[in-house]
Amino acid sequence: MDISFSAVLSQIMLGLNNGAFYALLSLGLAVIFGMLNVVNFAHGAFYMLGAFAALLGLDYLPRLLGSDVGIGFWSALLLGPLLVGLLGVLIEKTMLQRLYKVDHLYGLLLTFGLALIFEGVLTNYFNVAGEPYSGKPAMLEGAVNLGFMVFPAYRLFSIVFSLLVCFAVWYLAERTRLGSYLRAGTENPDVARAFGIDVPMLRSLTYFLGVALAGLAGVVAAPIYSVSPKMGSDLIIVVFAVVVIGGMGSIMGAIVTGLALGLLEGAVKVFYPPLANTVIFIVMALVLLWRPAGLFGKER
């Protein structure tokens, strides 16, 4: 097979597309792990719920209310993460909160169980093969000619949008006063409390933020992929690998590794397609051997 330069570039664009999703999802995981010390296995389920929020708002809600207009894409982009985030807060307040003091394993088991429940319930009502989301905004229909390839406008939008969100979150956590409170509240809760910071409230806020990011990724993914109860569990393993490679808890690490691995996967698809699904895990194994704390992580 002869490989042309434009073929490689095209696959790299697709890799960037996947990488932006990986970054957005692993970012939320990294925020939750870095600040709450919770391995959030329900992250894929929240991503899936975000996509379902968009689908249900557009197709089912109007049918239920008997109205003609549903919740469009732009509103879903705001409402989806909000609803998913609130569900997250509910879970944090009633369940997760009790597990901060015990081993990681308990949080992992709880969130894994929750993920199975969400998936199971939705599998009862929806096609596992997925339902198409028809709410793609008209202005993002069609394709853009990039010279070396024709790229769908919506996918281009999803890349740019995801990167902007990633940068905004990094800025919020690392460069603002609220971010410093968040970090202080989790790194040394006793001292933070002594300074009059409401630590439980900050923790809820952190979980809200992390989970809302997953919900947001779900809404952005809805027009590209079919919305299905299994869409989260398909992705979560890869996203965990990204977080492990980047270094658990490192925000910049999650963003950079997410993008880099998406690109790597895209490149591998050109040269040896059967390896594409495995390459991320090979990298993970190598990184764990060489730097057990991950590329951007600090040894604790």
Partner: peptide
């Protein structure tokens, strides 16, 4: 499969 884009690009090239 939900995303055929990579396969389709290979077909195209």
């Amino acid at each position: 499969t939900t995303d055929f884009s990579s396969y389709l690009l290979q077909a195209q090239s």
